[in-house]
Write a protein that binds this DNA or RNA. Structure first.
Length: 321
DNA sequence: AAGTTACACAACCGCGGACCT
DNA sequence: CAGGTCCGCGGTTGTGTAACT
């Protein structure tokens, strides 16, 4: 049994909107509103358009207070952070950027931002493939958390190397990468996440193996698709001898679209990071409006003078036999 | 100047979920 | 509870234009 078409495609006009059509639609909505029924609207407004097309035109172009044009650095940053946090949930990201539409942001991401961020992270791809060669790389996010005194070029919080649909993860991999001395605090943080079961109180506490590769990268593997972790905890880093904290929780939702990264912050930068990133993740809530993530970020544990990296990446091993 | 390519943006399509009957 | 309808979302395609050869 097929789905009934939303409109008669034979009589409906497609393609770019003319100024006359825009005026008709605008005037109708100003006078009558949408009436809660987009399907009936074009007929009432005298438009030979599909209701969905009208809705799209209104929401993305004609609606008041729509912002067009270049995105600011702040907007870039928010998009980067939210993409790292929730993936391609454009409507949620758009909700954090007044005047921007999901379509706008999606286009901006696909055409500009992604390319922009892809530059400069090539080495890490190699790094990842070296010790995870058997896994199919599904999504690789590079997140750069800038410490307060970090130089401007470190301020962009996210670089992205390889993105594809975040579906069908069967492994989630969280690793940390540090520049200069910050790496140790992040490694410690990640180690703490792996070694403290108390951090996770979800249905499945499935953090399994933590591993160190040859050049000191550390990864934590999640062998379960549906880990649900909603708490935020402070965990004192152990095992690597650093004063580090895990701030925030993460969630791998049932639909496993999300792999949230738990960030480690050096003791000296924890508060700043909390402030910096809480805004970036504020749009991420579960069905009961509980925050899914409170903090992501990484900082320089030794004084906040250098930038540091961490990245969360998700892999699928569905090509493994 | 004409043809080709690359890019940016607008619009379309199909699916999932909410809601209604 | 099942089926139908509509809305909203995200992925994809189409179109116009600038840049390049």
């Amino acid at each position: 049994m097929g789905r009934a078409p939303c409109c008669d495609k034979a009589t409906v006009k497609k393609g770019p909107w003319s100024p006359e059509e825009d005026i008709k639609l605008k005037e109708y909505i100003h006078k009558h509103g949408t009436g809660g029924n987009w399907i009936a609207l074009p007929h009432k407004a005298g438009l030979k358009r599909c209701g969905k097309s009208c809705r799209l035109r209104w929401l993305n172009y004609l609606r008041p207070n729509i912002k067009h044009g270049d995105f600011s650095d702040d907007e870039d940053r928010i998009i980067c952070n939210l993409f790292a946090t929730i993936g391609s949930r454009w409507s949620i990201i758009a909700a954090q950027l007044p005047g921007r539409t999901d379509n706008d942001i999606k286009n901006y991401w696909n055409t500009k931002l992604k390319k922009k961020l892809m530059h400069g992270v090539q080495p890490y791809t190699t790094h990842m493939h070296n010790h995870c060669s058997s896994m199919k790389q599904q999504q690789l996010l590079f997140l750069t958390a800038s410490a307060p005194a970090a130089p401007p070029e470190a301020a962009c919080p996210l670089s992205l190397q390889h993105l594809s649909s975040p579906h069908d993860y069967s492994h989630h991999y969280i690793s940390s990468y540090g520049s200069s001395n910050s790496s140790t605090s992040l490694l410690s943080a990640a180690a703490a996440a792996g070694s403290h079961g108390g951090l996770l109180n979800g249905e499945h506490q499935t953090m399994s193996t933590s591993c160190l590769d040859s050049d000191g990268g550390l990864g934590l593997y999640f062998d379960e698709l549906c880990a649900t972790v909603t708490t935020s905890s402070g965990v004192h880093g152990q095992g690597l001898g650093m004063e580090s904290f895990i701030l925030g929780g993460f969630q791998l939702q049932e639909d496993h679209h999300k792999a949230m990264l738990v960030a480690g912050a050096g003791a000296g930068a924890a508060n700043q990071l909390n402030q910096q990133y809480s805004a970036a993740t504020s749009g991420c809530y579960d069905d009961e409006a509980k925050p899914l993530v409170s903090v992501t970020g990484g900082g320089d544990g030794a004084g906040g003078t250098s930038s540091s990296f961490f990245y969360g990446s998700s892999y699928s091993n569905d090509d493994e036999s």
